[in-house]
Amino acid sequence: MMMEAPGAVQFVVPRREVTDASLVESWTNSQAYSDIFGLVQAFNEAAKGKACQKDSEGNSEETRHLVDLLSKLDKWIDEIPPIDQPQRFGNKAFRTWHERLEMNAMSLVDPLLPDKYKDANKEIAVYLSGGFGNATRIDYGTGHELSFAAFLCCLCKLRVLKEDDFGSVVCRVFPAYLDVTRKLQSTYNMEPAGSQGVWGLDDFQFLPYIWGSSQLIESSGRSKIEPSSFPDPKVANFNAGDFMFMSCIDFIYKMKTGPFNEHSSILYSISGLPTWSKINKGLIKMYKGEVLTKFPIIQHFPFGTLLPFTPKRQQ
């Protein structure tokens, strides 16, 4: 996995390149795709058998800063309450929240960057801003989640985040990101972007199911959870604080009513697999097919210097 930026870099504001479905193959052969999928795999390995971290003790200064950044975004939601409006979905107060994010994105990432990479803030800020939903449509989905993963990938390529940080990023930073996105979804009644309804894995997320299933591969003792038991709301709620996969199931129960096997049929079918390892491998394959190679998602993805739309470099 290429996880380092080249020496002399001219950073740019990322722009979209996949303007036609015929360009999806160019995307899957690009350096950007290789780096992002490499990050998914690296974080998947780093999460294996590890519970979510409840605090930042032992984390690097950089991962602590990321948690603080997300905490600030969380507080902004409290400062910008939903407005009274006729329609049920898509509260327009989200646009005010997102405008504040866009205006402050570069200053939010500045403290993370070493002096030689300060100019990267205009590039990285685009991925950060894109990670929390669309202000026009007031929706959120796996494309926005992908943007936040790209933000983390850029920090890895600049060596702001190092391999020793991966466990903390996936088990502490990403759960904090999930907390913010869930609060946005419930506070502003955001629409799911590109949801496949009962035929999709989840209305909003995908990566926490991959990394969350990896957390459960080597779980044991009190934390030993069999795949067949995760649809049980009590099991999900009890373990939501320790494992991302379980927090996703718990959130579904908070947002939806009715039988689990009806509103979450794909997840219910997954619970029939014998091991978390099989679930994990299947989800990675599904992520490539349902997110990373889907034109409606990738058409919105912007490319720059750190994540270029150029052929993958040969190792």
Rank of each mutant, 00 (worst) to 15 (best):
L146V: 04
I36K: 11
G212I: 07
D164R: 12
E79C: 04
S277V: 08
L70R: 09
N237F: 08
R182S: 02
K118A: 14
L112S: 10
A51I: 09
D110Y: 07
C154V: 11
D55Y: 05
V9C: 14
D68R: 10
A46H: 04
L152A: 07
Q315G: 13
S60G: 15
R222Y: 09
K54R: 15
S60F: 06
S269G: 14
T257R: 13
V126P: 03
L207S: 13
C52F: 05
C248P: 03
C156A: 15
L128R: 01
F132C: 06
E123R: 06
R64C: 14
T293V: 10
T181S: 01
M246G: 11
Q87A: 10
F166G: 10
G7S: 13
F11A: 04
F174P: 01
E145R: 06
F309L: 03
D165Q: 11
D164N: 12
S30L: 05
N237V: 00
S195L: 04
K75L: 11
R172L: 14
Y209P: 03
L101V: 05
W276G: 09
F204V: 02
I279D: 07
D165F: 10
Q185N: 04
R16P: 00
I252W: 00
S129V: 02
K157M: 11
P208L: 07
K285N: 13
T142H: 03
G282F: 07
S213A: 13
P274W: 01
F132L: 07
Q196G: 08
D250W: 07
R159W: 05
N29V: 00
A176C: 11
A47K: 00
L101A: 01
L155T: 02
G221V: 08
F238K: 15
N280Q: 12
D250S: 15
K72V: 15
I83G: 12
N239I: 00
I80V: 15
V169I: 13
D78I: 06
R88G: 05
F37E: 13
A120P: 03
P81R: 01
E4R: 05
F260E: 13
E57D: 12
T28Q: 13
S147Y: 07
P86E: 15
D74T: 06
F243Y: 15
K281E: 15
D78S: 12
T96K: 14
R137M: 11
E62Y: 04
G141C: 05
E191P: 12
V160M: 03
E290C: 03
